[in-house]
């Protein structure tokens, strides 16, 4: 069973993901954040391995700190976390520059384009759709 965190200010996407995740058999919990600031606060304060996500779905565009800022800070935060966390970028952007940039970051395991669907979520390992 795994935990998933969604960091995206788009409420429709959050809704859609939660609906889709109901059909996944191995998801224990979903943590949703609508801003990078909120997400960073959570990761700074949370140590319990059980509460931490196994997978983070991270949007790029936010009005405040953005997805790249999150990745920068997460590099540091990660050092205090004893859990292997995979990050997947999830964005409407189809700019090559965004995709290339995310490929260059080791933390990022994949880039998923919106609109999301159960088929493009299959790219995420550990997800079991039944």
């Amino acid at each position: 069973m795994i935990n998933v965190a969604i960091i995206d200010d788009n409420m429709i996407l959050q809704m859609h993901l939660k609906k889709l995740f109901l059909t996944y058999s191995n998801i224990r919990s979903i943590n949703s954040f609508t801003s990078v600031e909120d997400a960073l606060e959570f990761f700074k304060e949370t140590n319990e391995v059980d509460k931490l996500p196994d997978i983070i779905l991270l949007d790029i565009n936010f009005p405040g700190l953005d997805g790249w800022d999150f990745l920068d800070e997460f590099e540091e935060i990660k050092k205090n976390i004893e859990k292997e966390i995979s990050i997947y970028m999830i964005s409407s952007s189809i700019m090559d520059s965004d995709i290339e940039k995310s490929k260059a970051i080791e933390l990022v395991k994949g880039f998923i384009n919106k609109p999301i669907s159960s088929s493009n979520l299959d790219d995420i390992k550990n997800f079991k759709n039944n």
């Binding site: 409407s92 952007s93 189809i94 999301i116």
Partner: peptide, 11 residues
Amino acid sequence: TSHDLREPISN
């Protein structure tokens, strides 16, 4: 166009 116009369509 790559983001702000794609976002509502994705939605």
